[in-house]
Amino acid sequence: MSAQPANQPAEDTTLDAEVTGIVTDLLEEHGSETAALRALAHDFVILLADADRSVSRGYLRGLFSQGARPVPEKDA
């Protein structure tokens, strides 16, 4: 027995259909291709900066790498 009546088409759940829907939504929200691309680029840069801050660089050659937790200062 089918979950949908025979006269209704199945929803397209492919990756291409999802991407197309996202692009359509972006164009509707921002009004132009340029504005949509600017919004995507902005979000991408913010995500990259956030990811860069949250990634541990580890302990390299006896020194903490740049971006890692600061080394606590010793009280003199």
Rank of each mutant, 00 (worst) to 15 (best):
M1S: 13
S2Q: 13
A3Y: 15
A3S: 14
Q4F: 12
Q4P: 11
Q4A: 14
P5V: 11
A6W: 10
N7K: 09
N7A: 11
Q8I: 10
P9M: 09
A10C: 04
A10V: 06
D12L: 11
D12H: 11
D12K: 12
D12R: 11
T14W: 07
T14E: 06
L15P: 12
D16W: 09
V19L: 10
T20P: 03
T20R: 09
T20K: 08
G21M: 14
G21E: 15
V23R: 09
V23E: 10
T24H: 12
L27C: 10
E29S: 08
E29D: 10
H30Q: 15
G31L: 14
G31N: 14
A35K: 15
A36W: 08
A36D: 11
L37M: 14
R38M: 15
A39Y: 10
L40C: 09
L40Y: 10
L40K: 08
A41Y: 13
D43Y: 04
F44S: 10
L47Y: 05
L48S: 04
L48N: 00
A49Q: 04
A49K: 00
D52V: 00
R53C: 01
V55T: 01
S56C: 05
R57T: 03
R57W: 04
G58T: 03
G58M: 00
Y59R: 03
L60K: 02
R61S: 00
G62M: 04
L63M: 04
F64L: 08
Q66W: 01
Q66V: 05
Q66P: 02
G67L: 00
R69D: 05
P70G: 05
V71D: 04
K74H: 07
A76L: 03
A76K: 02
